[in-house]
Nucleic acid binder design. Structure first.
Lengths: 199, 199
DNA sequence: ATTATTTCTTGTCCCAGTTCAATGCACACC
DNA sequence: GGTGTGCATTGAACTGGGACAAGAAATAAT
């Protein structure tokens, strides 16, 4: 098993020794999941925290009236889990996690993660930082949802996920941006016209 | 100094021994801040994490075009800080934190918080849970911003913060909900009419 | 008490984005 | 090679909420 990808990723904000990385790697479980598999559904407890080696996953809410909102796309080098605090209140998850491509993961369970923190406590810090990044990005999306137009949101999305439009159906991106699939299509037509003018 | 309020609050998700709580309390600094004081402004580094004993604080973004969005109201028993991950990248904050009433706080600095984690590591867990709660609530707000009408958002807000409308100006609530102050006024009129019908 | 300042309400007009079709397109699959 | 089936595009009609303006009401300041 090749751990260089995940080790590089986790070392971005904290410098770990080889011993620490060895412990880290020994607790990870490799998992292959085919396309269109629902890994977590509403009402279940989320018992994994998965690092995406390869593939693409979406995480979403469905509200009582059936309206769906995508909370996160996770592609290579990202983590997916129900990181909401339901874990600590023993409440089941309100979200769904579903693969959109054939995926490969490295996975922690609550138990192996706890073991990691016991054996190599400095990983607490790394995971706290991941959580902070997640929060910062969610805050930014909240801000965008409130203050930006569809076109602005789409252009910012393209900068953040330049490859996703080639990988997933457009209506998922619309759901992520909080606009209808039809209006995203119109917005893209407009954006294309603008970049035509620019050359 | 009376620490019973903060000790009760921090013990909600983790049970601490008296020794741990003593360490916790010894590292906190009491601070009184008058109304309408800006505690953090854009471009500064946030060097505090404050527990609200009494009063009310708002935390907000201002975008380049001058548009303002309130990210959080913090009242009694809540924590305020720039918890975005900018801390770890040494980037200055993009947000403002401002008191809306005369306030009393118990405050950690990055240094005293680090000291707390060293001397009583189980507080890591408590603060991680706070972060999770924060993230869950931000995710929920994102979902609401995308999928709910102004009326629905206002009614949910009333359940979450029943006392705030009596404490802060309406246009701040509008900014939190992501709607204009005028439209909030119209929405409230509509909500009042509905509850009239109900009796 | 009077004035000034901020906040709240209400009305009118307008637009970004929705909803609901209809049509075209690109596949997978027998 | 036809034919479903899901996806993207485009258009027409509609609506939630914004922008602006002008009063009313409440708070603060002198």
């Amino acid at each position: 098993m090749d751990f260089s990808q995940i080790n590089k990723s986790i070392s971005r904000y904290v410098n770990f020794s080889q011993e620490e990385l060895d412990i880290f790697n020994s607790l990870l479980e490799y998992k292959k999941v085919p396309k269109k598999t629902i890994m977590l559904r509403e009402g279940e407890m989320c018992n994994f925290e998965a690092f995406v080696i390869k593939g693409c996953v979406r995480k979403y809410y469905i509200d009582p009236s059936g309206f769906e909102v995508i909370l996160q796309f996770a592609i290579e080098d990202a983590w997916v889990s129900d990181i909401s605090f339901s874990i600590y209140e023993d409440k089941p998850s309100r979200i769904f996690i579903e693969t959109m491509e054939d995926c490969e993961f490295l996975v922690f369970t609550p138990e192996t993660k706890e073991e990691l923190f016991t054996k190599a406590p400095r990983f607490e810090r790394a995971f706290r930082i991941l959580l902070h990044r997640n929060l910062a990005s969610t805050q930014n999306r909240l801000f965008n949802a409130i203050s930006k137009t569809a076109l602005e949101k789409y252009l910012e999305f393209l900068e953040l996920y330049p490859t996703l439009p080639q990988r997933v159906a457009q209506h998922y991106i619309a759901s992520y941006l909080g606009i209808s699939a039809e209006f995203l299509s119109k917005t893209r037509a407009k954006a294309a016209k603008i970049s035509d003018f620019r050359g």
